[in-house]
Design a binder for these strands. Structure first.
Lengths: 216, 216
DNA sequence: TCGAAAGTAAGACTTTAGTCTAATAGACGA
DNA sequence: TCGTCTATTAGACTAAAGTCTTACTTTCGA
């Protein structure tokens, strides 16, 4: 019996994935989550053999979400499901520890192949990207490691920093005192090897796959 | 008699462009510049009919450089010469006012075609990108307009801000007092419709085509 | 040619960022 | 089970960011 967790915010696409998986694979147990918090909670309470993760979930913050999950559950294999076709982005996804990349346009049999391969311990990528996936540069994987070493609170603070919020506003959003926010900020700086918030924002935006939405 | 300005930091590529242009076109006068400052100075002192601009010149800051030139010399047609093949980036280049995009891999005849077309007032793009160039979204072109409205000093300050420098360090680099830097910073915020430096850095990094180099 | 508008520059002041010290609570290995 | 390590929290303090006001200069159109 194999347990799979489908993490995607679109109910229709979850249905499609569920259909593709249950018709191609036997003896599987399917779980679902619609946002990052639900994904984390499900992983905490279940023994999941493979996570199928959509990067564009609410609260996920793209690559941050993947880093977050990889840090909290390093033993859970992750296959990223996304609509992007950019080899550079896929390189980054693989570079931070995803064992596979499944395009949203993949067929049922491709998806089943990918899941089987990853469960066997292999890395699976669409054939179209053979040879197009580069090693991510050392700089990037070092940054990714450093960001992954952040605690959940620090991670949330960094997300809010990247949105241009003041410490006071971050504290209000997280329901903690401004002084606590500052302590997190200082800890983030030390872990990332920097000394001001501008540099932190640059690192955060480098790890972001999509340009930030509107400036508030 | 048509005056062309070749702005590229690689002497060899300038030679190649010069060769391609002088063998394909008659009655042309060729000027050259190796960095953004020299480009600006040449445009100030000459009546240039077309600028062939490499985005990766020293001091150019990629899209910033193009915005800068477009703002200072809105009447000079610009064709961007670059090695990138990413349709999204090319869309942005065209979206901020370039009349053409010439890949570094283009043949002599392609280059001559492009130059002729742009001098006739047309927009020229490589055939490979037909249909792949999207309209840039309203948000982006609004930001580009706002950034283009910055004065040269404000532009330099924003560049240094994006590199994570303190106001004091920016003042030292530009040889002005910290108080002056602050005045520029406040003016930048007003023009961009924001109220802190984090948001300014985000906008600047969105307009950057390449990820920032190392974090200092 | 003269005044209006805008870029540049800077001092004084308020707000926010960031550091240092320290206390509490939970996790983990000996 | 005990001690150690670390995350989290927070107060007090210093450094930097950001605002307001003012002044000098250049440019441009009436």
């Amino acid at each position: 019996m194999i347990t799979l967790l489908i993490a995607d915010d679109h109910p229709l696409y979850r249905d499609a994935l569920r259909g593709a998986l249950s018709s191609s694979l036997t003896d599987i147990h399917l779980l679902e989550a619609a946002d990052l918090a639900a994904t984390v909670e499900t992983l905490e309470h279940n023994d999941v053999d493979l996570l199928l993760l959509d990067l564009h979930m609410p609260g996920s913050q793209d690559l941050f979400g993947l880093l977050h999950i990889r840090k909290l559950f390093p033993d859970v294999p992750v296959a990223v499901v996304s609509g992007t076709e950019d080899p550079l982005i896929i390189s980054k996804i693989v570079g931070v520890g995803a064992l596979g990349f499944i395009p949203k346009t993949a067929s049922s049999s491709d998806i089943a192949d990918a899941v089987s391969a990853i469960l066997d311990g292999d890395v699976w990528l669409p054939e179209a990207f053979d040879g197009k996936i580069e090693e991510v540069d050392e700089e990037f994987s070092k940054l990714a490691d450093q960001v992954a070493s952040l605690t959940p609170s620090q991670y949330k603070v960094l997300c809010y920093m990247r949105d241009g919020l003041l410490n006071k506003q971050i504290g209000y959003n997280l329901d903690i005192a401004e002084a606590t926010v500052k302590a997190h900020v200082t800890a983030i700086f030390k872990k990332l090897g920097i000394n001001n918030r501008t540099q932190a924002v640059l690192i955060a935006s480098q790890l972001e796959l999509e340009p930030p939405a509107a400036i508030h």
